[in-house]
Design a protein around this nucleic acid. Sequence first.
DNA 1: CCAATATCAGGTAGACTGATATGT
DNA 2: CACATATCAGTCTACCTGATATTG
Lengths: 153, 153
Amino acid sequence: MEARGASSDEPRLTYLVKQLQEALLDQLDGITQPFGLTPRQYTTLSVLARHRGMSSAALGRLTFVTPQAAHEMVATLERKGFLERFVDEDNRRQLEVELTRAGTRTLARCDELIDRLEADVFSSLGTAERERFRRALATCTAATQRSGVPVRR
Amino acid sequence: MEARGASSDEPRLTYLVKQLQEALLDQLDGITQPFGLTPRQYTTLSVLARHRGMSSAALGRLTFVTPQAAHEMVATLERKGFLERFVDEDNRRQLEVELTRAGTRTLARCDELIDRLEADVFSSLGTAERERFRRALATCTAATQRSGVPVRR
DNA sequence: CCAATATCAGGTAGACTGATATGT
DNA sequence: CACATATCAGTCTACCTGATATTG
């Protein structure tokens, strides 16, 4: 992503957003890696923690990926011992996902470190400024989704 | 990326940043795809346009990827006819990259459409608010890089 | 001989599409 | 039979590491 467009002298906002996201991702990676997780795997784990008993097909719908991609991610996390799957007795064609004790513990530790990272990074804004920033992010995301391309699914 | 951390009730700022970046990326994709470019390829092209005659090793340093990854990207863009390479006569171990006419024209068209996208998306903030947003992004990126993990290279 | 560059080969993560088996 | 789910297989992209040749 390059810094600026054809007409302006300042970096594109699109570029600044990407730059911040990448910087944060690098930090996330440093946090999750010692626990044997990639940032994506951490994220998936936290989605599953918040939606107990979900199937991988449902996970795929929630995270806008194909059921196959979701299945692979779940299989990886299962192989690493962070979760287990059980046949859903009410609907035996699907498997309920449950975090193992190791999964729960690891997630909690990552959450704590990431809370601290966010406190660090965003304390460079004042409290009021931080709230304005939060609102601006939400507003622009909504505006972007409204603009142009229709949403998938 | 899940919405919130362990303690708060609001989505993590980290999550909101990623969400906006992904929404913008979807739009970028819609813009560049008709020209036969991915958003990354467009970005590379605009970096090379701004740094005429750069080698792919230099591109790698600028974009924080390995020389091999940069070389692959350049090779792809060359294959698609957006740029050409010539031996640098001052330093014959490296190749200068130059945009073709098609590359320059395509880049200009994408830039124009992306300018319009940004105008669309960020007009949902007022002028003053947009400047605050820009400053907040830059401030947080700097704070993130200062925090924790040392910078690569 | 050492450093920087280009480039080939092989590997990985995470997405995709397509095909198949099974349960409702 | 239709449909949802799980899961296997193959492919793609964009990165990675390692090895090698060439130039300075």
